[in-house]
């Protein structure tokens, strides 16, 4: 379980996280949405300590992320992360991208790491591209490799930071399909995304953020039910729908 308790963060004097609290249970798929600049990505990065917080606490499976004694490398190996801009290592082949951290962090044998990598590439439909370099692949393929790279660490949790925002529209589907499969397999996922249709299909929980605060945290039925929505969420979803129609 991931527990956020009254998390606060400032950039200089500008508040970015304004007392966020939430619990994310194992097996759940949680979608975080909200207008840009609301602090969604920052909150996500705080979960695996890529960003520090100034107040409050975050724990993953009971381990305090912010405690000075916490072994961050071990924690991060347990929490996989997928970035908006993929961040594959361009100087390494696809299979080396998947194997590097397995060998160096988990201390797996080279052959075991390669076997695991190949199995995962097969799962995301890219086994044929194992020896290619990231920049030879399309954006959608790169993001699927990035997902496989995170999965190679056998994480308990997966964090997705706007995984489809940098993709051409025709490639969004293939990435979402991989994520949908993951959700069905019972992976615990926290996803920051603007893909509301996808959220409607796979999310168990919806978290809505606005100006650094969590203003809604509920099941997806309640979230998408016009009768129960706040004015703010209705306006946001309306804007999202608008964006979908206009080319």
């Amino acid at each position: 379980m991931i527990v956020l308790d009254n998390v606060r963060k400032w950039y200089g004097t500008t508040p970015v996280l304004n007392g966020c609290s939430a619990r994310i249970a194992a097996g759940e798929t949680t979608v975080i949405c909200g207008p840009s600049g609301s602090g969604k990505s920052t909150l996500l990065r705080c979960i695996n300590a890529l960003e520090s917080i100034q107040q409050g606490s975050i724990s993953v499976d009971g381990v305090e992320v912010t405690a000075p004694k916490t072994d961050l490398c071990a924690l991060r190996a347990r929490v996989g992360m997928v970035f908006q801009s993929f961040e594959l290592f361009p100087h390494l082949s696809v299979i080396e991208n998947l194997a590097l951290a397995q060998i160096k962090v988990l201390r797996r044998a080279r052959t075991a790491a390669r076997d695991r990598a190949l199995a995962l590439l097969d799962r995301v439909g890219l086994a044929a591209h194992a020896e290619k370099y990231p920049l030879q692949l399309s954006g959608g393929q790169q993001q699927r490799v990035a997902i496989a790279r995170a999965l190679a660490m056998d994480p308990r949790y997966m964090l997705f930071d706007e995984p489809t925002s940098a993709l051409d529209p025709e490639m969004v589907g293939e990435v979402l399909a991989v994520m949908r499969q993951l959700a069905m397999d019972g992976m615990t996922m926290v996803i920051v995304t603007h893909e509301m249709e996808f959220a409607r299909q796979v999310a168990h929980r919806m978290i809505f953020m606005d100006q650094g605060q969590i203003t809604a945290d509920c099941g997806k039925q309640a979230f998408f039910d016009p009768a129960q929505q706040s004015e703010r969420i209705r306006a946001f979803l309306g804007g999202m729908a608008q964006r979908r129609i206009t080319p």
């Binding site: 970035f83 961040e87 594959l88 995170a150 660490m153």
Partner: peptide
């Protein structure tokens, strides 16, 4: 790139050396 290495649990020295 640094963030990605951190997210994978690589130490700073490993990140510098391999990535």
């Amino acid at each position: 790139q640094m963030r990605a290495t951190q997210a994978l649990g690589l130490s700073r020295i490993q990140a510098l050396r391999y990535v």
